[in-house]
């Protein structure tokens, strides 16, 4: 009973906390390396910020949808947790080894659209609502591209299970076998987690977008959920393209952590280096450039799978 039910839950909670903290620290490291001074020590600053948000009151707006507004950050955190639950740390160390874990990740992406829209909509506030609209308008294209790319990695594995996807990379990692896959997936990942250049839902031109009206503990949960989603995404990227736990000398989970950290660093660096894309350019990029590229990636993956 313990190992079946509680161990996976503990594992996911551990990942949520450690992962969220790692993102906060890593992002501050990247920022200070790029010349933005950070106050109060990089290791302590995330905690101080969390403590401040815990002492701050959660504010109200005029006639919001209270239930949805308060639930949305928690639901987003739950989605990040579901994503983390299907990421395998080794052949046996995985919270839920669902045989359709690749499709479950696709559902997490789709449900994230719902939750982000709900978060923006329920505040009954203008800028938050625009943020929600924007995410829905763009989210569909993220989901499509991400699906095609993930079907590509499922082909050589002949399975929709992440553990099988890793096993299929024993000889050659997917990052080499399907060269288009990882770059496409990383760009979509920035969009899906609305981070950096593709942060159009919680952007500065909307004074924080869907999160522009929240404060206190709900904001803390929302920020943690966003960080956890980024961790979950990098876990999926490392599993699908970088061979997951595979690697010489070191134990599997350590390899997995290193690969996730590498993906996270790339994402956070991109987030700090690039300006925010104009939404219209983003739509063009997704539908005109990346979607056809993901078709090519899929055909390539199919051809390689047949040839092997």
């Amino acid at each position: 009973m313990f190992s079946e039910l509680f161990l996976p839950v503990l594992m996911v909670i551990f990942m949520l906390v450690v992962g969220g903290y790692a993102v906060a620290v890593l992002d501050r490291l990247v920022a200070s390396a790029l010349g933005t001074p950070q106050a109060g020590g990089i290791w302590l600053a995330p905690m101080a910020r969390g403590a401040w948000l815990l002492t701050q009151h959660a504010n109200a707006t005029e006639a919001p949808d209270w239930r949805a507004w308060r639930l949305a950050p928690a639901l987003y955190l739950a989605l990040a947790a579901s994503g983390l639950a299907v990421v395998p740390w080794s052949a046996s160390l995985v919270a839920t080894d669902l045989i359709t874990s690749v499709v479950l990740w696709g559902s997490v992406e789709a449900l994230a659209t719902v939750v982000i829209f709900l978060h923006g909509w329920s505040a009954n506030s203008l800028l938050a609502l625009i943020g929600g609209y924007r995410y829905v308008a763009l989210g569909l294209s993220y989901i499509l591209i991400s699906m095609f790319v993930l079907i590509g990695v499922a082909l050589p594995a002949e399975s929709l299970q992440f553990t099988q996807v890793v096993a299929s990379q024993e000889g050659l990692w997917n990052v080499i076998r399907q060269p288009l896959g990882l770059p496409l997936f990383l760009i979509v990942g920035l969009g899906m987690t609305f981070w950096g250049p593709l942060n159009l839902a919680d952007s500065t031109d909307l004074a924080g977008g869907t999160a522009s009206e929240i404060s206190g503990p709900p904001r803390l949960v929302w920020d943690m959920a966003r960080a956890a989603m980024l961790v979950a995404f990098s876990g999926v990227a490392a599993t699908a393209f970088l061979g997951g736990w595979l690697g010489p000398w070191l134990p599997g989970p350590l390899w997995m952590s290193l690969k996730m950290l590498a993906v996270l660093s790339v994402l956070l660096l991109l987030g700090r280096l690039l300006p925010r894309l104009a939404p219209e350019r983003c739509v063009t990029l997704m539908w005109v450039v990346l979607l056809p590229l993901s078709f090519i990636d899929l055909v390539w993956a199919g051809a390689v799978a047949l040839w092997e």
Binding site: A39, G40, L44, A45, M47, A48, R49, A51, W52, L54, T55
Partner: peptide
């Protein structure tokens, strides 16, 4: 202790 920790972060203005 929570308040003490909160006071050590940067000041949101």
């Amino acid at each position: 202790r929570l308040h003490k920790l909160a006071s050590r972060g940067s000041v949101p203005v």
